[in-house]
């Protein structure tokens, strides 16, 4: 199957981001475990507060998305779908908590999605189908994570917290329209977490070529070929960002320039927000994009797969009472490793 398009045109009606206020410089991690002798994959990462998790962060992003949806009543939202790999409960949906908090209950579908770092774009693709078929007029798709990294592991430098929420709806009410999307998946075990385990395992360098690069290159190439588009037709390109190097390399390999990639590249400032990673990059781009501009979005989820989307910007919302993505990034409280360990619950208190 090639490019996917719904029966009726669908777009992003509203969007909202969230990033917690704490930042841990990667140098803090390097000092502790390598005496500072480590090439840092990012500058710093975001860390959730003691009272934050995927439910609370999703609620705030969803409220921001609603604030940007031109007065849409929450009761008109036919789906509340939260994609994450750090849902607060093993059994008990995050999505019902979010749906209740934004006033979308009770006549709505609610579900939690899981596909490592592409759980959020997966929810978006399904939402395009739900709205595109006419089963619902509006659907809320969220990608959000409070990522875990084992102390001392390479992931500890980058595993961040944050994400974004999108109200998906009819094209005529949308800020940006989905022109088409591709999903490319294979059984590639590059990263996983078993039941009851606290930290994920990964296959080291195997997460690069056969996993990240192969899947994103495949989904994006297919999208461009099938839609008869080339890299230069896009003003912006946003890729999944596990570190600062990978998205730049995959983008340039596909023919995109640094200027197209940079506005949506947030990983140096907030780390890898997993299911939120490419999606919060998209919100940073939507904050500055102008009508007529085209955006490429490509996620990657370990296990593995990539969803690629072509979006055409068609409007802007005036006077929105919601913080922009940069507002959250600029709201920054630096912490040291000792405080980080406390916020992550790594001290035994009794």
């Amino acid at each position: 199957m090639g490019v996917m398009k719904p029966n009726r045109a669908v777009g992003i009606v509203g969007y909202g981001a969230y990033v917690p206020r704490y930042r841990l410089p990667a140098q803090e991690v390097a000092e502790l475990w390598t005496e500072g002798n480590m090439q840092l994959p990012v500058r710093e990462k975001s860390v959730p507060g003691l009272d934050e998790d995927v439910a609370t962060m999703s609620i705030e992003a969803a409220r921001n998305a609603l604030a940007r949806s031109g007065g849409l009543l929450p009761s008109r939202i036919g789906a509340v779908w939260v994609g994450s790999e750090s849902h607060p409960y093993a059994v008990k949906p995050t999505s019902t908590i979010v749906a209740e908090a934004i006033g979308a209950t009770p006549y709505t579908t609610a579900a939690d999605w899981q596909f490592a770092c592409k759980a959020g774009t997966e929810a978006i693709q399904a939402a395009i189908g739900l709205v595109g078929s006419g089963m619902a007029d509006y659907a809320l798709a969220i990608g959000m994570d409070a990522a875990q990294g084992r102390p001392g592991d390479a992931l500890e430098y980058t595993a961040g917290a944050g994400g974004a929420a999108f109200v998906i709806g009819p094209a005529e009410a949308s800020l940006a329209v989905f022109e088409g999307s591709v999903s490319y998946v294979t059984d590639t075990p590059d990263f996983w977490r078993r039941q009851y385990e606290k930290f994920p395992e990964h296959a080291g360098r195997f997460t690069g070529e056969p996993a990240y690069f192969h899947h994103i290159s495949s989904s994006v190439s297919q999208l461009l070929t099938e839609m008869n588009l080339k890299a230069s037709d896009f003003t912006y390109a946003v890729f999944h960002q596990p570190n600062a190097k990978f998205p730049m390399k995959v983008g340039e390999d596909l023919g995109f320039t640094r200027e197209q990639i940079k506005p949506g590249l947030l990983v140096n400032e907030i780390g890898n927000t997993y299911a939120g990673s490419s999606l919060i990059g998209l919100t940073a781009v939507l904050d500055i994009a102008k009508p007529g501009q085209r955006i490429l979005l490509a996620s990657f989820g370990s296990g593995a797969g990539s969803d690629a989307f072509s979006l055409l910007v068609q409007g802007r919302r005036e006077g929105v009472q919601a913080p922009g993505t940069r507002d959250y990034i600029n709201r920054r409280t630096q912490i040291d490793y000792a405080m980080y360990a406390r916020l992550k619950g790594n001290y035994k208190l009794n």
């Binding site: 009272d51 998790d53 439910a55 609370t56 607060p88 409960y89 908590i97 908090a101 904050d287 500055i288 802007r316 919302r317 005036e318 006077g319 929105v320 009472q321 919601a322 913080p323 922009g324 993505t325 940069r326 507002d327 959250y328 600029n330 709201r331």
Partner: peptide, 20 residues
């Protein structure tokens, strides 16, 4: 997990200004 309201300093909203 018990969720509920807390209050925080009003978050800066440069996004709204930029969008206008």
């Amino acid at each position: 997990v018990v969720y509920g309201y807390k209050f925080r300093p009003v978050c800066a909203n440069q996004g709204a200004a930029a969008q206008q």
